[in-house]
């Protein structure tokens, strides 16, 4: 019993060590040479343009749904003119980053893990190493850069679309004027809210890139293993995004209380 526990503890420490090493190596790979420009551009396109439709669709319907729900409650309290304010806070700080993060995780993380995992199982990664090419720099760095650029951009687009969705409900259902709605929205575009709204997607992008690449690079067990890693990659990325979101909210809240 004691030896089993010791074995598991050793395995756990080994995994933590591997995760940390991979994370540091992946982060540093963004700054070293050679820079794979064409691969990075390709990934920017795949992540950005590829996820745009999904993010726009999610933003518009979630924005409208939220505005409808909030309007009903706020009308009862006689404060429906504050709809724009509540929409801006909840979308910029929470809903926009989380929705975009989860959508990108579902769409992109699976693709990254499946691609790198199948390369691993067919020895293509070994072939790269044999030719003196660092697979982390060649495969992980372009994906990390693309995600860290595109997830914040997609989040901003999602925020704008969701707020516009809320505006549609505000003028059609809630009978609030455009001027009132947008003045309330602009009132909450403070440094703190924007900072939180941009910081979160940058961190989420790192989480998605790190987990999906790590799962790809550590895939074993052939095609079945690739499927398993892909599932785990999406599941773990999504859960970690939700946990990190809470931690970031708590940290930024305590640091920038005055600016929020």
């Amino acid at each position: 019993m004691k030896s089993v526990l010791y074995g598991r503890f050793k395995r756990f420490i080994y995994e933590i060590d591997q995760l940390t090493r991979f994370s540091v190596k992946m982060f540093l790979s963004m700054f070293g040479r050679p820079i794979y420009v064409s691969e990075t551009m390709e990934q920017l396109y795949l992540v950005g343009v590829g996820s745009l439709f999904l993010v726009v669709l999610t933003g518009i319907f979630v924005g409208q749904g939220m505005a409808l729900q909030l309007n009903n409650e706020m009308a009862e309290m006689g404060s429906k003119f504050y709809l724009g304010r509540i929409m801006a806070i909840s979308i910029i700080r929470e809903i926009g980053p989380i929705l975009t993060g989860l959508m990108v995780a579902a769409r992109v993380a699976a693709g990254i893990t499946a691609e790198i995992g199948s390369m691993k199982s067919s020895h293509q990664l070994d072939a790269m190493v044999a030719f003196g090419i660092d697979p982390i720099r060649k495969l992980a760095a372009p994906r990390l850069i693309a995600l860290m650029v595109m997830v914040p951009v997609l989040t901003i687009i999602c925020d704008i679309i969701a707020i516009l969705g809320g505006w549609f409900i505000a003028i059609v259902v809630a009978n609030i004027t455009s001027a009132t709605y947008f003045s309330m929205v602009l009132d909450r575009l403070t440094f703190g809210n924007i900072f939180m709204g941009v910081l979160k997607p940058v961190v989420f992008a790192y989480v998605i890139a790190f987990i999906s690449c790590y799962k790809g690079f550590t895939t074993s067990g052939g095609t079945k293993g690739v499927g398993r890693s892909t599932n785990e990659s999406v599941m773990i990325s999504s859960v970690v995004i939700l946990i990190v979101n809470f931690v970031l909210t708590r940290v930024v809240w305590s640091l920038l209380k005055g600016s929020l």
Binding site: M119, S122, H123, Q124, D126, A127, A130
Partner: peptide, 12 residues
């Protein structure tokens, strides 16, 4: 030293 992997390991 060069290595030819099983099934070639070509970049597909």
């Amino acid at each position: 030293i060069a290595m030819v992997f099983q099934d070639g390991a070509l970049f597909d």
